[in-house]
């Protein structure tokens, strides 16, 4: 049993390392090759865990090979459009100028129900609101709505730009730990932070969470039980 435990631990560490090596892209929407690698890794990993008779190397070797292939192929794809098309395919326009391209839908084996479901996931319930729709290589539908159906934005209303409002609030203190990079990104320093903490009768170590934007607006939550 202890052998199984340690083998599982080793495989866990290797798989986490592998997924990290494949990068953040892997964790979001999966490209076809990434989906294949993910499925294969999960299958291969179970064998040496379940069967103590199988040498651990027999599991580690294919897992690490798949990860390296994926990283190398994605690096090649980055530089070669042709390879990208082979490994990931191309986006397909399924609605053009408000017209559904039924032939393309058939080629993708995408039923009208699938299309409607994807539109609904994009918060679109009427087909006539769509001007342009593309099935991405990940299988997701990207939609460009007709002018009349688009969400009203400050740009549409020709309101003046407010650069201060473009910066999102960042977490500068979490559980008493200061993210100095984010603090610098907001144009502040430790002295400012200590001043703010002192003005709220606390110390940085007692801050549970604090967010800050570039305009200097902050929101602070003190740790429970802190004075």
């Amino acid at each position: 049993m202890l052998v199984t435990f340690f083998r599982t631990l080793i495989l866990y560490v290797v798989i986490v390392f592998g997924v990290r090596l494949m990068g953040k892209r892997q964790l979001g929407e999966l490209q076809p090759s990434e989906l294949v690698v993910t499925i294969l890794i999960s299958n291969i990993a179970t064998l040496p865990i379940e069967e103590v008779e199988t040498p651990l190397f027999s599991g580690l070797l294919p897992i690490l090979s798949l990860v390296t292939f994926e990283v190398i192929i994605s690096a090649i794809n980055l530089h070669s459009r042709r390879m990208r098309r082979v490994f990931s395919g191309s986006p397909v326009v399924v609605i053009k100028n408000g017209e559904i391209d039924q032939k393309k839908l058939q080629e993708l084996r995408f039923s009208i129900d699938d299309l409607m479901a994807q539109l609904r996931q994009n918060q679109i319930f009427a087909l006539d609101e769509v001007d342009f729709a593309v099935v991405e290589t990940t299988g997701k539908l990207s939609v460009y709505q007709k002018y009349g159906a688009r969400t009203l934005t400050p740009k549409t209303l020709e309101l003046p730009d407010q650069p201060d409002q473009n910066a999102p609030p960042l977490v500068v203190v979490s559980d008493g730990y200061v993210y100095s990079d984010y603090l610098a990104l907001c144009g502040k320093d430790m002295a400012w932070l200590e001043g703010i903490a002192a003005s709220r009768h606390t110390v940085i170590g007692d801050i549970f969470v604090m967010t800050l934007d570039r305009a200097g607006n902050y929101h602070m939550v003190k740790r429970e039980g802190a004075v």
Binding site: L21, L61, T68, V71, I72, A75
Partner: peptide
């Protein structure tokens, strides 16, 4: 950095495979 790690890893894998044989 990832690509370099992957290439190094690939060489290591090929090396281990050859060594095992």
């Amino acid at each position: 950095k990832r690509l370099v790690t992957a290439v190094v890893l690939l060489f290591l894998i090929v090396g281990i495979s050859c060594f095992s044989l």
